[in-house]
């Protein structure tokens, strides 16, 4: 199973974290083979929101929702099940000042492919 661990927190609290601590964890989880991709994000002030409505592009400053806790980074991980994913998420350093949302990956490509194959067989 693939899970995306979304790291959230208040910017001020996250800014107080030691980057070396975060990178050390990142190196460790990448070495374990459990991490498929991971990045930290620039602050929310650098965000741009893009929408397309009726074919018309709209570009606005900032994240789409005004919340105190902002998305600060992510880890795409491979885990046996949710319990293992929770263990990984609990070790991500910002979990101590913010929170980590664990979302299972929806196998959208596999589903579309299987549906097409089934339609062809019928």
């Amino acid at each position: 199973m693939k899970y995306l661990c979304l790291v959230y927190g208040e910017e001020r609290a996250l800014a107080g974290m030691d980057d070396r601590h975060c990178v050390a964890y990142d190196e460790q989880i990448r070495a374990s083979g459990q991490c498929l991709a991971s990045e930290a994000l620039q602050p929310a002030a650098t965000a741009t929101t893009v929408r397309v409505r009726n074919g018309k592009l709209s570009v606005t400053d900032g994240p789409f929702a005004e919340t105190k806790e902002i998305l600060a980074g992510f880890y795409m991980i491979e885990a046996r099940d949710l319990n293992e994913a929770i263990q990984v998420a609990s070790r991500i350093p910002p979990a101590e000042v913010g929170c980590v949302e664990v979302r299972p990956i929806r196998p959208i490509r596999e589903t579309v492919k299987a549906n097409a194959a089934k339609a062809a067989a019928d």
Binding site: R80, N83, P104
Partner: peptide, 14 residues
């Protein structure tokens, strides 16, 4: 089903 909550008794640590 979708989040793969395992069918297990947690280990000693949990």
């Amino acid at each position: 089903k979708d989040a793969a909550i395992p069918y297990e008794v947690p280990g000693a640590a949990q």
